[in-house]
Design a binder for these strands. Structure first.
Ligand SMILES: O=c1ccn([C@H]2C[C@H](O)[C@@H](COP(=O)(O)OP(=O)(O)OP(=O)(O)O)O2)c(=O)[nH]1
Ligand SMILES: [Mg+2]
Length: 731
DNA sequence: GATCAGCATGG
DNA sequence: CCATGC
DNA sequence: GATC
């Protein structure tokens, strides 16, 4: 009941949150609580000349995107799956833009490039070949059923009659499978589609031959629309081209391995998948023999990687590893293995249960994307793992990564995870995060896939990758991921408050490249407009000190309204971050209900606006009595940038849950909530609820009954999670 | 093959 | 309802 | 991608 709030005098806000910090003295800086509210000094003069909002970004010049295929049109509108969305990105290289967002990447951004990054026929990139025309240019008709030109075929390449349907991918069907019901209609009735007979008679077989990668699926669709058949199975009698995914950096041997063959017939062309993309781009069949389409004969990994033999790799490993590891390694391995097993045996739920799901493994497509590429590993039966293992919220996440023996592995896997997040592959990204989390917990170095595989949340694919990292000190996929063909404009637009994937894609598809374009040519929602106009401001991180100033100003104003209000700066600030993406402020009051708080919010925001502190609202409660949050922008002084600021009003009874929620981080929250739901609870910003019944699609049927909402710590306790001070919640 | 958190606000 | 954000 |  008593959580420190009740007992202590509410001088300012300190008392309110005393309990939060009382026990976490461990290593969290007292700085943020103790000192913060003692004297809300308001003398804020801008310390130094602040960096002026850089309006240059608005005028960035980029090559015109004129003559390009209309691919983007069709796809911008049709790829609707919010979390799995994708578009074609068969237009490759261009520099990647480093993004500074952290959660945003993790969340689910896919930086598609539905529009080629480079102007197609305007200028030729230095690495771009001058495509040698091996055939007449084929016209491309923009509407289905328009004039088709029979066009002569490239003589070197034998074309073939259309193969039976069952040998081909049914792309529409695959696409529908991956599209939410609500949007299927849109997929079926797609608008303008770029078509041609460019690839008529060509039968493409993809490596990896999986349709689960949405980007690849889109590429397949595109090639199909240009006349190609996309074969579902490897059959030398039908295939004319093998298209190797360039993002995989595979070498020729691996291709053969994937095909389970020792050689590919001469008449079949083996090229990188950028080849057909280029053909489309230039609207003609370019010379496939150009070096840039070659599938390398030797591994492409940097630092002279071993000949990629994962399973029996001990020999290679010894060669490739630094001297010292020679002897240790074997020991380590043995110890580690045993340790892992011993550890595993200690765990609850362990009943030596053997999983029986191995059947799917070797099947062509059933496994998740690209599965077959990863070495066909003998399936070691595997022990079941502790179920609460691998929950991020169970760990102390304070960013203490160093001194971990798996440091390098962690680095690389994290980078991969970030890459997948950027690419909007949310779940894959999450898997990488989880794997990294379990690696962090290891006290010994993981050398082999076999060891890695035994750890929670590390499956075969990641285990293989871990071994590859240890051996080669890198991961081939990452080499590609690093210079991902990100569309600069898309990334720019995704950085606009109020604009997400949908709008960004749409705008890119329309050929916009700068923020100014949006202002001039697009209908923007109110908040999007501000998001565009203030992009340069909002993109900047906020120094902790400035966050504190904003917070103190708000607190002072609030207390002038009602001295009993309790406010706290939340979010990354409470977690002790040196700089923050925005300012999060929670407001509550003893025994207040939502209604009362709502009144406070209105008067407070009105007052702060009148003061000139709040510059605008971006998302504010609709009704009169409901509503709990206020998003807007604030500014301390004219020289400083506008900052994003969020208020959360909280009924007294919900303060514990709200504290938990608003402290985050987001990953931590999701982890706690997932754990809660696995234990039959429901956790949200209002409280922890019990006896929640979930229906068919795991939808909640029963609200559940409130168990705890007042005390943050007790929520931890009930869920069986060791309490984590805010600074340890950076998952 | 389903799941990977749960909710608030704008339009 | 969907998109976007926390 | 991993898990059930
Ligand atoms: O998807 C989300 C995003 C945020 N939050 C919670 C946790 C987070 O800490 C808090 C504030 O959100 P914000 O976006 O401000 O994140 P932050 O943790 O404060 O980081 P930043 O420094 O980017 O503001 O809201 C969630 O629960 N889920
Ligand atoms: Mg924040």
């Amino acid at each position: 009941m008593t959580n420190g709030l009740d007992a202590k005098p509410n001088y300012l806000n300190k008392a309110f949150f005393d309990d939060l910090y009382a026990l976490d003295n461990t290593e969290s800086e007292d700085e943020n609580d103790v000192n913060l509210f003692t004297i809300p000094s308001l003398a804020r003069k801008p310390k130094a000349a602040p960096p002026q909002p850089d309006s240059a970004t608005m005028k960035e010049t980029e090559p015109p995107k004129t003559a390009r295929l209309a691919l983007s049109d069709a796809e911008g509108k049709n790829i609707n799956a919010p979390k799995t969305a994708s578009t074609m990105s068969t237009d490759w290289p261009t520099g990647e833009t480093r993004n500074t967002i952290s959660r945003d990447i993790r969340k689910d951004l896919r930086f598609t490039s539905s529009t080629p990054t480079k102007a197609t026929n305007i200028k030729v990139h230095k690495t771009d070949p001058m495509p040698k025309v091996t055939e007449k240019v084929k016209p491309i008709d923009h509407e289905v059923g328009m004039v088709k030109t029979p066009g002569p075929k490239f003589e070197e390449v034998a074309t073939k009659p259309k193969p039976p349907a069952h040998l081909c991918w049914n792309l529409l069907e695959e696409k529908l499978k991956r599209t939410p019901k609500s949007k299927k209609k849109a997929v079926v009735s797609r608008g303008l589609i770029e078509r041609s007979d460019l690839f008529d008679g060509y039968h493409f077989y993809f490596i990896p031959n999986s349709v689960k990668n949405p980007v690849r699926l889109r590429a397949m669709e595109s090639f199909h629309e240009h006349g190609a058949c996309i074969l579902k199975e490897w059959d030398p009698n039908w295939v004319t081209h093998i298209l190797v995914d360039s993002s995989w950096n595979l070498d020729y041997a691996e291709v053969l391995k994937d095909l389970k063959t020792s050689s590919v017939p001469d008449h079949i062309i083996v090229v990188l998948d950028i080849y057909p993309s280029d053909c489309i781009k230039y609207r003609r069949l370019v010379d496939h023999k150009q070096f840039m389409y070659d599938v390398p004969r030797t591994p492409t990994a940097p630092a002279s990687p071993p000949p990629l033999s994962l399973p029996q790799s001990t020999a290679n490993f010894i060669k490739e590893t630094p001297p010292r590891s020679y002897s240790d390694s074997s020991k380590d391995t043995g110890n580690e293995l045993q340790a892992a097993i011993l550890e595993a045996k200690k765990l609850p739920f362990l009943d030596d249960h053997y999983e029986s799901s191995s059947s799917k493994e070797l099947n062509v497509d059933s496994d998740s994307d690209e599965s077959r590429i990863a070495s066909p590993r003998k399936k070691a039966p595997r022990l079941r793992k502790d179920q609460t293992f691998g929950f991020q919220c169970m760990n102390k996440n304070d960013g203490t990564t160093k001194n971990n023996p798996n440091q390098r592995t962690i680095e690389i896997l994290s980078e991969m995870g970030d890459y997948y997040a950027r690419v909007r592959d949310e779940w894959r990204s999450m898997s990488y995060r989880k794997a990294v989390a379990t690696l962090r917990k290891q006290t010994k170095k993981i050398w082999f896939a076999s060891e890695a595989r035994k750890l929670p949340n590390i499956g075969e694919r990641l285990a293989d990758k871990i071994e590859e990292i240890v051996q080669t000190d890198s991961l081939r996929r990452l080499e590609y991921a690093r210079d991902e063909p990100g569309d600069a404009a898309l990334k720019l637009f995704l950085g606009v408050y109020g604009a997400g994937l949908k709008h960004a894609q749409q705008w890119v598809a329309k050929g916009h490249t700068t923020l100014q374009d949006l202002l001039d040519k697009e209908k923007l929602s109110a908040s999007q407009r501000i998001g565009v106009e203030r992009h340069a401001d909002f993109a900047q991180r906020i120094p902790r000190e400035e966050v504190r100033h904003h917070g103190e100003l708000v607190i002072k104003a609030a207390l002038e309204i009602d001295g009993e209000l309790k406010l706290e700066i939340m979010g990354s600030y409470r977690r002790g971050a040196k700089d923050c993406g925005d300012i999060d402020v929670m407001i509550t009051k003893e025994d207040a209900g939502n209604r009362e708080m709502r009144g406070v919010l209105d008067t407070l925001t009105t007052k702060l606006t009148a003061m000139g502190f709040l510059k605008c609202g971006l998302a504010i409660p609709r009704g009169h009595d409901d509503g709990s949050k206020w998003h807007g922008a604030s500014q301390l002084s004219p020289e400083l940038p506008w900052r994003r600021i969020d208020f959360l009003i909280v009924p007294w009874a919900e303060r514990g849950a709200a504290l938990l929620y608003f402290t985050g981080n987001d990953i931590f929250n999701r982890s706690m909530r997932l754990l809660a739901s696995k234990k039959g609870y429901r956790l949200n910003q209002r409280g922890l609820y019990k006896d929640v019944i979930r229906g068919p699609q795991r939808q909640k049927i029963t609200e559940g009954t409130l168990v705890e909402g007042e005390d943050e710590k007790r929520i931890f306790k009930i869920l069986g999670v060791p309490y984590r001070p805010p600074s340890d919640r950076n998952c």
